[in-house]
Simulated assay, not measured.
Amino acid sequence: MRLQAVPGIGPVGCKQLIERFGSPSAVFADKGILAESGLRPDLAGRYGEEQYLRWAEDELEFATKRGIRCISYLDPGYPAGLLQCADGPPVLFTRGAIRFDAGPLVSVVGTRGMTEYGRQCCEAFIRGIAPINPIIISGYAYGIDITAQRTAMSLGLQTIACMAHGLDRVYPAAHRRYEGELLENGGYLSEFPRGTLPEPGHFLRRNRVIAGLSPATVVIESGERGGSLVTAGLAFGYNREVFAFPGRVTDMQSRGCHQLIRQQKAQLIQDAGEFLHAMGWEPEGGDPDSHRPTRLPEHLEPNEQSLARILRESGSRHLDDLAISCGISVSEALTSLFSLEMMGLVRALPGKCFCWEG
């Protein structure tokens, strides 16, 4: 932590120094050795300054009082995904009940300007992968990020909010209302010490953490520019799996996803079943010849439960019949059927008919 506080030393340089000298303490042992190592004289002279030691001691004291855990990349509890990244943070700060080894990690990102289609895709995707008990990673931002994390919390899944500032604050402030629930099953993670503000450059650094933590990044919706594409590009550079949901060719908020697919940086997926199949994470007991979920998920909305039950028993029905049987409007039926389709449980047929696929 003291080493990281020295201006001019980034994550890569910090790790290189520790690797060269054998341990963090050894780096500070002899200024002469530092100067001879080829380090810039002005930087070498700063290593022994007491202000950085005092800063590190104060930071540790603050973390202890606030229940913040400090994890060095040399510690056994450091996440394996970031350990494989050369530019991974030397130190992580976490708050909450984060358990990196409690399940497969999945990064879910997307636009802040989420559409209704994006919301439905996001919620259906999280519900669809819930049987494997994943850990959902995202950036706690408006739109797709918070939708993914709120859905995960509603299902009792662990979720990790990667922040672009110190853990002495929560940004955006509107999301403070989710803090208690998040801390109970997951929590906040940041590489930034207290007092660090959510400045633009920090979000780019945060994105590499989201990309590096998990073996798979899923882009739900994205315009032609934005942080989601940056995260996807970083994940692709880390040789991680990248997936994207398509939209209509006229949808501005799907152009980024189409771009990733067109550039062969992301695999096209239409539902959670396809994602699980591609990752080899299908729940045990499923049909080995199919990537579709074989059991009805436990956490369906009431309308989805009714529609799924009818289609499961009858095989296929017309949209109007389904709406009448469930006592809901056609538009409500279509919304719920879309969610079920995204989970791989139903399939749309010509003539406004739907059949059971589960």
Rank of each mutant, 00 (worst) to 15 (best):
E36C: 08
E341F: 00
R99M: 06
E301W: 09
H318L: 02
Q253I: 05
C326R: 00
T147S: 11
I33C: 13
S23K: 04
P104D: 06
F243D: 03
R205T: 10
S72M: 05
R177N: 11
E341M: 08
D145V: 11
L268D: 02
V106N: 00
P11H: 04
D145P: 11
I324Y: 11
A5K: 09
V12N: 08
H299K: 15
L197R: 14
I132M: 06
A63D: 07
T294R: 15
I310N: 00
T115K: 00
G67W: 04
V209A: 09
F192T: 07
A308K: 00
R347A: 10
R240M: 05
D145E: 12
R169A: 15
P24C: 07
E57T: 12
R46A: 14
G315K: 03
A272T: 06
I126W: 01
Q84D: 11
P76Y: 08
K15W: 07
A26E: 08
S306D: 07
S290K: 12
C257E: 04
H291M: 13
S23V: 06
V346H: 04
S254N: 08
A173G: 09
L183F: 01
L3W: 07
E61Q: 10
G233K: 05
E57D: 14
P76L: 09
G247A: 02
L300H: 03
F62S: 12
D320R: 10
A148L: 04
L268H: 00
L213C: 10
A232C: 04
G22Y: 03
Q16N: 12
R347E: 11
E116S: 07
G10F: 04
A148C: 08
V170Y: 06
Y73W: 15
E57C: 09
Q264N: 15
A272G: 10
C121F: 01
N133Y: 00
C353S: 12
A216D: 02
L17A: 08
L197S: 12
R205S: 10
E301S: 05
Y188L: 12
V12T: 14
I33Q: 14
G186I: 01
D87P: 05
S306C: 05
A174I: 11
D58Q: 15
R2T: 08
R262N: 11
F243A: 06
I129V: 02
L229A: 02
L43R: 02
P302R: 07
R262D: 10
S214M: 07
I18S: 05
G358F: 00
I18Y: 02
P76K: 09
E274V: 07
P24V: 06
S329K: 08
A97C: 13
L260Y: 13
L157Y: 12
L349E: 13
P193I: 14
F236W: 13
L307K: 06
L183V: 01
C70P: 02
E341Q: 09
Q263P: 12
R292D: 14
L167G: 10
C326Y: 03
A161P: 10
A235W: 07
R99V: 08
I68D: 01
E179M: 14
F93D: 08
G103N: 09
I220T: 00
S23I: 02
Y78S: 01
L82Y: 00
